[in-house]
């Protein structure tokens, strides 16, 4: 089992780095080429969400992305924001998306979660085991070469 772990300060500029690394490891792990765009987007969304939460709560802590390729390609994105921040993740219906009263932040959060949920078949969102925070775990199948 190979594991790559990446930790970055919660700045938007680093999300792209996380996407690039995530896709590189996915390709190396044997994730099908046609899934790589979805892997890129899902990892980006999970990291964007973590960065937004850290900024919202003024947390300088690093966001961690852990990638492992044992029997499948597993990516865990770990934030350290209070757990209640993860409550309310919900896909927004179309009439609410265009609602004038919906803030840009709420819209982006809802759309971001809709993307992760829509792209990843095997998805878990759960509290981290020690301290505050949430882990978004995404798994993709791999084919061994």
């Amino acid at each position: 089992m190979a594991t790559v772990r990446l930790s970055f300060s919660p700045a938007p500029v680093h999300v792209r780095t996380a996407r690039l690394v995530g896709v590189a490891v996915a390709r190396r792990a044997g994730v099908a080429e046609e899934l790589l765009d979805e892997v890129r987007l899902a990892i980006g969304e999970a990291c964007t969400r973590a960065v937004a939460l850290h900024n919202q709560y003024g947390l300088p802590d690093l966001v961690t992305v852990e990638m492992s390729d044992s029997d499948s390609y597993s990516v865990r994105v770990i934030d350290h924001a209070p757990i209640e921040a993860s409550v309310g993740l919900a896909k927004l219906p179309p009439d609410e998306l265009a609602d004038e009263s919906l803030t840009d932040e709420a819209l982006t959060t809802g759309v971001g979660f809709a993307l992760i949920a829509g792209l990843v078949d095997d998805l878990q969102v759960r509290p981290v085991e020690d301290g505050p925070g949430t882990e978004v775990r995404m798994i993709w199948p791999v084919s061994r070469r």
Binding site: E45, T48, A98, D104, L107, G112
Partner: peptide, 10 residues
């Protein structure tokens, strides 16, 4: 990504 989509909706 979702941030870009949010900008377009805005």
């Amino acid at each position: 990504d979702s941030t870009g989509l949010g900008v377009l909706v805005g």
